[in-house]
Design a protein around this nucleic acid. Sequence first.
DNA 1: TAAGGCATGTAAGACGTTACATGATTAC
DNA 2: GTAATCATGTAACGTCTTACATGCCTTA
Lengths: 187, 187
Amino acid sequence: MDGHALSELEGVVLGVVWKFGPCTPHAIRSHFFASRSARFSGSAGAIYPLVARLERAALLRSRSDRLRRQRRRLYEITPAGRRRLVTWISPPFRDQDVGALHDPIRTRVYFLAALPAPERRRFLGDAEAGLRRTLDLMKQDLAGYRHAGSHLSVLAMRGAIGLARAQLRWLAAIHDDVVRAGARDRG
Amino acid sequence: MDGHALSELEGVVLGVVWKFGPCTPHAIRSHFFASRSARFSGSAGAIYPLVARLERAALLRSRSDRLRRQRRRLYEITPAGRRRLVTWISPPFRDQDVGALHDPIRTRVYFLAALPAPERRRFLGDAEAGLRRTLDLMKQDLAGYRHAGSHLSVLAMRGAIGLARAQLRWLAAIHDDVVRAGARDRG
DNA sequence: TAAGGCATGTAAGACGTTACATGATTAC
DNA sequence: GTAATCATGTAACGTCTTACATGCCTTA
């Protein structure tokens, strides 16, 4: 992280501190708790060592603070951190960044011939139900961001919603094929 | 992995061995090398210990083999492994499986106000170019799967292509907003 | 007064990756 | 003959998760 590239989590944390700082590590964690994406949990064991690392690299700086009698530490981004954030965001993109997205449902579809036809039907039904729930939650998030005037969060959320809709369209489109698929030949 | 749930990589490997087995660990690795998804690299340091683990858990069994004078080990799935695969594929899905997909481009969009407007334009242009390249490659993969008669691979690939198209539509839709966005207020 | 949110951290472990080391076989 | 591919593995490391430990503050 000193000479090397930032990890995905390091980049996001740097971005969060830039966008919402000065803030406590706990506040940073809250963003991950609130996120629909399960990529990172925002666990203490990840965040506290990470901000310490970023501070040692002079990308963040911190000061002690006190809220009532509650001790806490406020982090903010440094000019070097700001430059590093710009580099992290900017092209060129790595192949993995613009490559195929990872989708656990799709991964399982590759092996769906391992299930008997009724189970395959249940698979598709449950996946659709789960995606619809997620979609509803994301629509609520979207309304919240709109209300808060978080312009870029609104745009990003539209992307996430577009992906969920694409997943749902795909499930509907392949339904008949899947239920009939690969009964004897492993698909 | 004995009493616990299978990791994503363990599930996929079990599925690959079921679908293409008996096969060598090297052949398993090839599937990851050929995959458009960057979730797993198929590194030797992941695969060889993993198949050994699955064999200890009696989900795979193996036998020594020889191709010319090349020693190798062929793995195939056991009945217990087959049952475990079915469980791994089947609902109920975890929240993370039907939650928002992780998309590195979208992650960066949250912080796009950190870039000046011309850089934001370049960001969108490069992302679009990268996604189009991926899309083209995936279309070739699709044709290959069709030709090979890999029915479920065709269906899965249609899902991946649908997602890439959704990403491209999203980028086009937010273009004007992004370029104007959050010049002073961090978006 | 109990529950839950705010706040900071550490320890152990799971799970990957990168890099290395070795050797046989095939295609140019 | 030499480069690429097939083939098997190990060692060191990075990074994140789970679980634990502690304490303050607010609300019901």
